[in-house]
Write a protein that binds this DNA or RNA. Structure first.
Lengths: 192, 192
DNA sequence: CCTATCATGGACAGGACCGTTCGAGAAAGG
DNA sequence: CCTTTCTCGAACGGTCCTGTCCATGATAGG
């Protein structure tokens, strides 16, 4: 399909990248950002945007697809062996960056995209966490008196809360990883 | 201002209550619910709604005001003395019900109302939690290596996550209090 | 029973956003 | 340098929501 010589002109490709970049940034702050705003932030006319993306939904789809790809790539190399708590700390550190960058995109996608595609995007990282969680539970390092799915929900909630707090400037981006990690690990590990 | 004899007709008052009730329920699920939808859910014409509320914002304001009043009333009687963890458990139990019922209203209010009024609504319950939290920290029952404000953010995040999970039918409303309590207390209390 | 009060649907203006079309003009790239 | 490709702004139709007006009809309550 794709020829060896790039089928699109250079400025077109640059604009496409700028649009996706701008969309990612804007949607992270406001999932309801308009196409108008995204185009403006990308330094591009609205019509130009529609020249590259059939619809707002198509744009969000593309942004989400890239976010998923980057997420999977970033999480693929995380070492999940060893002490489950240490491994969870590594996983959370990596996930934090992704949540902070793409959290709003997920919300936007959730309003605009069919649930199936979205479910798949959530399921992949969740499965990774689930496997680690279950190993830690089996080894007695994580509490077992709460459902695994609820624990995953908790992890996501704390991550999103931290992202929101950073956007609201309640905490700094530098502090966030430590807070998130300490909070989640305590919630997972500690019973009375 | 208000005379002894009710200034409004009986059916008018009934409709007003129905509208507020419907708005509370709808906004809890979808903070962007339209006036149209709210009126329909209340079994009332849209024009009738506008007869009682000047604007969508005014309606949300009224709904939020009631939510705040109910919240303060419900939290006023909570005994915050004794073991900080036990007291926190009581506070969380009460707050859970309110979060689950009014969580969406707060989101809707956040989009439609000026921030000052909203800040006040959040500050009152937060102050209660903060005081208890600080006492527990001073008594060595809660960890002190995380900022108090972050701990409050965590509490709110877990509560909202549970509410969302119940709406999504991932967990049952009956299980939620236990999960929320166990999770939050572990996050607050447990270090390594 | 009678009147003031309220409910109601239709219709309308105003605004926001989406998606499309057109024509003119700029830039890429062979 | 010249053609293909892309950009851009203006403008338009469509949808959806808010808020308002009006005329008709029901109902409460004295």
């Amino acid at each position: 399909m794709t020829a060896v010589t790039s089928p699109k002109r250079a400025d077109a490709r640059r604009n496409i990248e700028a649009i996706i970049e701008a969309a990612t940034n804007l949607l992270a702050v406001d999932p309801d950002a308009s196409v108008q705003d995204i185009a403006k932030a990308a330094g591009v006319g609205r019509v130009t945007l529609y020249g590259h993306f059939d619809s707002r939904t198509a744009l969000i789809n593309e942004v989400a697809t890239r976010a998923i790809a980057q997420t999977e790539e970033a999480l693929r190399d995380i070492d999940l062996d060893g002490d489950p708590r240490d491994a969870m700390a590594r996983l959370i550190d990596a996930t934090w960056l992704l949540t902070h960058r793409f959290g709003g995109v997920v919300v936007a996608a959730g309003q605009a995209l069919p649930p199936e595609e979205l479910r798949r995007a959530h399921e992949e990282p969740a499965a990774r966490a689930r496997a680690l969680l279950e190993r830690g539970r089996a080894e007695g390092r994580f509490r077992t008196d709460l459902p695994v799915e609820w624990q995953i929900t908790t992890i996501q909630a704390v991550l999103h809360a931290a992202s929101g707090a950073v956007h609201r400037k309640e905490i700094s981006a530098a502090d966030a990883p430590r807070l998130v990690n300490a909070t989640i690990l305590a919630a997972l590990a500690g019973a009375d």
